[in-house]
Design a protein around this nucleic acid. Structure first.
Lengths: 193, 193
DNA sequence: CCTACCGATCGGTAGG
DNA sequence: CCTACCGATCGGTAGG
């Protein structure tokens, strides 16, 4: 029975990620969610604590995925431009592997309740700071151009974090090519020649 | 009395833009809006037709602003790279002049009801196509590098359309510098040397 | 996992 | 622009 409960919980999470992405967190009711899962609304609460907790789980699970990918891409002794390339690859891979959850992560985090909201913002700040410090390192090593690293990182995240929207507008292009093209644009544009 | 009504209507629009930005369209109630304006909820309907109409007005007014700025930046006989620079300048200026409305435009358009939703997507598609055609022109003229113009335009919009979030995270930097830096990144990165 | 149900809140209208 | 109010829907609980 434990296995069934675990599967149902996973199913609820998957369906919730999809609905929250399509309609937004606030515009998705627990009745919508229950119907899409195929059970009565009240039955959801055998598997999850609350709608708020559901959003919290989705956002913090994604945060963990991003941090783990970043940890793996930071190998000591590797030049900063290569570290940046690997960090970009990892970040984009996590998004592509979790399209619905990523959309919720980037669009719906505002609806987190305190103290989760403050903690979320803090984690995001730390994550972005690690990218900024790689850029700074690259500038100190002389392998990256000396453009304001606050701006570069902000723009880099802007570009990466909307990849999940690509499919919503156009489908001819494989999203996998994104990583290579983002890297080309930012690294060829930034690398000292 | 007409003047008073017009002012009140403008005030409702401004307050709504701010609330929809902060809390999202679905999570903002007409009671929240009325309270922030300083009148009773029912009194809102002397000035606006519905909550849906309010969102629709905000989104389509912004769409018009963007198109007008683009029209003004397209001067015949000007080289495509310079036209792109002016189009970027205009787009970013509209965002900076309408921070709350821009945030609603970019985040809350999903909640538009049909047929407005379809019309909105169509307008956005047309607008983006005009940028893509400037990039293509630049490539044909040999002044812009031959990187996939779908990708370039998508990434360019990703970078420009999140400028309104800059102040939410950091305040040290003037948003006005953005236009120059986006242009530097994309045009120096793209321009044939 | 269901039936039955709660109090709260929603967008909006009637009538003045 | 207000008072009074409508039907619908919300997240969630009790009890089995």
């Amino acid at each position: 029975m434990e296995a069934v409960v675990a599967n149902r919980k996973d199913q609820i999470h998957r369906v919730a990620q999809n609905l929250f992405r399509q309609r937004g967190f606030s515009a998705t009711s627990m009745r919508d969610l229950a119907k899409a899962v195929g059970i009565e609304p009240a039955s959801l609460y055998s598997h999850i604590a609350s709608k708020d907790q559901l959003l919290q789980d989705i956002c913090f699970q994604m945060a963990q995925e991003f941090f783990e990918a970043l940890d793996q891409s930071q190998i000591p002794g590797v030049k900063a431009d290569e570290q940046l390339r690997m960090a970009i690859d990892g970040h984009i891979r996590i998004i592509l592997d979790n399209l619905d959850a990523s959309a919720v992560f980037f669009h719906e985090w505002r609806h987190l309740k305190e103290p989760a909201l403050t903690e979320f913002k803090e984690l995001r700040k730390q994550y972005e700071e690690r990218f900024r410090s790689i850029v700074r390192e690259g500038q100190e090593q002389g392998v990256l151009r000396n453009i304001d690293e606050e701006f570069i990182t902000f723009t880099l995240f802007s570009s990466m974090n909307r990849i999940f929207e690509w499919q919503e507008t156009r489908k001819e292009k494989q999203p996998e090519e994104f990583s290579a093209q983002i890297n080309q644009l930012f690294l060829e544009g930034l690398r000292v020649e």
